[in-house]
Amino acid sequence: MFKRIMVPVDLTHADRLAKALNVAGDLAAHYGARLIYVGVTASTPSSIAHTPHEYGEKLAAFAKAQGLAAGVEAESHPVISHDPAVDLDPALVKAVSEVDADLVVMASHIPGLADHFWPSNGGTIASRAAVSVMVVR
């Protein structure tokens, strides 16, 4: 049913993603799909990496480890954004078509008051992406 599953990840908070990562791994194993881990970074140094290049390497290593754990093929797709704090959602929506995904599995927080002002990433992606989106809480 699904061939390419995109998993947006925030490497800074990888520990909070465990549930979504497991779900994505299980789904990929079930459908024999390929996992594509997408990470968005700025061109300035971050807590994860000094340069966009280094970020790409870390994301690739992360994808490889996740793929091995789930027993499926995995790849990574780093995206560079001028202003990730604001451009995260559009960057992820764009990535869906760039990586040719047919399903997005992503973690999201429990909706709260702030979502009326700053909608959650999961909610925005689900409403804008052309493919199925599974938001894991």
């Binding site: 807590s47 966009p52 290049h53 790409g56 390497e57 560079i80 760039e98």
Partner: peptide
């Protein structure tokens, strides 16, 4: 560059003189 990272990054960054510090941003 690992094979799987060659998409998405606008260009390879090339040589740069990174300062090694234990400090992590944030």
């Amino acid at each position: 560059t690992p094979e799987s990272t060659d998409q998405g990054i606008p260009a390879p960054e090339g040589a740069a003189d990174i300062i090694e510090t234990d400090y992590e941003i944030g």
